[in-house]
Design a binder for these strands. Structure first.
Lengths: 113, 113
DNA sequence: ATCATGCTTAGCCATGTCTCTAACTATACT
DNA sequence: AGTATAGTTAGAGACATGGCTAAGCATGAT
């Protein structure tokens, strides 16, 4: 299968880890430095760094280094493709439901004649 | 970090693969048997089976076997937790924006005095 | 200049993922 | 009964992931 949506795959993969989701939730309340993010996870710094780079490569966060401190911030628009995919999926599903409804309606009309 | 949301992890992981997403999109148009789903992927049956069981374990599809044919169907409500998580995330983000706005408003008031 | 802080790099290990082939089972067709 | 069809199981191989330790490198504080 062609990988038509590398973005979506990256995004969903980034979101599939509880640690990464908790980092995002934390960041939703405001930017934070690396150590600050690592602290509540109970994980070692290099491990958290890895999570952060997964998030950054997915475009979910942006980071910048000032002096020796790296500050991380959420990129809220990054979730748009996910939302869009969900909406599209629901749209197709609903279209199908509509067609099914039409079909049932048609059946009932035919029956009532 | 405690894994408070095994469901979400399963769901996001299931959605992180293009093949699996394409299967879901196909299923959104109506139920299908395994071979039918395998066909357009260009993958071997066992591989597709694996994808299907990932989708099933995440609760995204339901399958039933009739004779030697297994039919797969979408479970559209399964996406609800994902949608909820996205909404929650956005809510926190917007709350933060509001607080920021309040702060700015306050600053401006102070300044104008 | 020295030391502490904050991050980064390198490399290891166990486990998980995605794909395959080969062989098997169970159901339908003739 | 014999053959084709639809799926399943088992297992292998290549690579990714998530965690770690140990060592390195800037930058800020004294």
């Amino acid at each position: 299968m062609a990988k038509h949506d590398p973005d979506l795959s990256l995004l969903f993969h980034a979101l599939s880890d509880p640690t990464r989701r908790s980092i995002l939730t934390r960041l939703a309340e405001g930017p934070a430095r690396v150590t600050e993010l690592a602290d509540p996870t109970g994980l070692r710094l290099p491990t958290v760094m890895r999570h952060l780079s997964v998030l950054e490569e997915a475009g979910l966060i942006a980071t910048a280094k000032d002096g020796r401190v790296r500050t991380c911030a959420l990129v809220p628009e990054a979730l748009t493709p996910v939302r869009t995919w969900l909406d599209d999926q629901r749209a197709i599903w609903e279209a199908r439901l509509d067609r099914l409804e039409d079909y049932v309606t048609k059946l009932m009309k035919e029956r009532s004649q």
